[in-house]
Amino acid sequence: MEVLFLLAGGAAAGLFGSLLGLGGGILIVPLLTLGAGLPIREAVGVSLVCVIVTSGAAAGVYLERHTANLRLGMLLELFTATGALVGGLVAFLLPDRVLAGLFALLLGYVAFTMLKAARKPATVAATTPVASQQSAPEADTATGREAAIRRLSGPGYRVGRIRFGILGSVLAGVVSALLGIGGGIVKVPVMNLVMGVPLRVATATSNLMIGVTATASAVIYLLRGGINAYVAGPTAIGVFVGATVGSRIAGRVNVRVLRFLFVAVQVYVAFQMVLRALGLTS
């Protein structure tokens, strides 16, 4: 029964994550800590494995359709991987209670942004990326740099503000390694709103990057005994199945209702994580 719980829980996390455009990590860590009683660091290690699996499956499709920007993704993942390396090492120095507190903050932030998106469903998609409006940014006049930016850009958009993208990528890597998430909640807004990458391309490119980002820290968790094979196996299978089903039924589900339900769950989980951070629960 316990094996089935992990399989079913992983499938639910993968399904909801896929329908709501989130990685499964934000659901897997609470599932394993609050549902299965695992220490948060062990849950993060398992979650990183699941995140790599979902990234591999999704990124394959996005690349085949040429939606993901391989060059931009690889440039930025050099920095997400560096951030993940630092985060992976720091994670073993922090007490469980600090990690729980950080996770509660993350859940609060995600719940807030989802509520905002639910109230204004068209705003994000309709936003014209700031950087794409710039015809010739002042800093990009050098020929070599201009050629490099052209190679990183895609049809209909021009990538800008690469330094901000690099900073955001390092941050996304650290957050991913500490909390076992893909880091898309940082990368997608940075690429879309700051660098001028269309939302659809930013989401696809973020999906591509997640695999390498999570690998840099998953290696540390693996070698330091932070990944439990008996838990990781069934959970990863469940997440894979759930995410695959989710991507197929996404167009037929009322995501608005689902989003409000999900926010309620997040608020509850954040409350539990706060209790854990304060040492008021095991």
């Binding site: 699996v53 591999g56 499956a57 990124a59 394959g60 499709v61 996005y62 690349l63 085949e64 359709r65 040429h66 939606t67 993901a68 920007n69 391989l70 060059r71 052209r150 190679r151 990183l152 850009s153 895609g154 049809p155 209909g156 958009y157 269309p198 659809r200 391309v201 695999g211 894979f240």
Partner: peptide
């Protein structure tokens, strides 16, 4: 937005080759 990767036909081939590698590995 579906895009054509830079690098022309070779860039497309690389995208497809990597996509298949990821799918196979997964």
């Amino acid at each position: 937005m579906t895009g054509v990767p830079t690098g022309g036909g070779a860039g497309r081939d690389l995208d497809v080759m990597i996509a298949r590698l990821l799918t196979f590995g997964t």
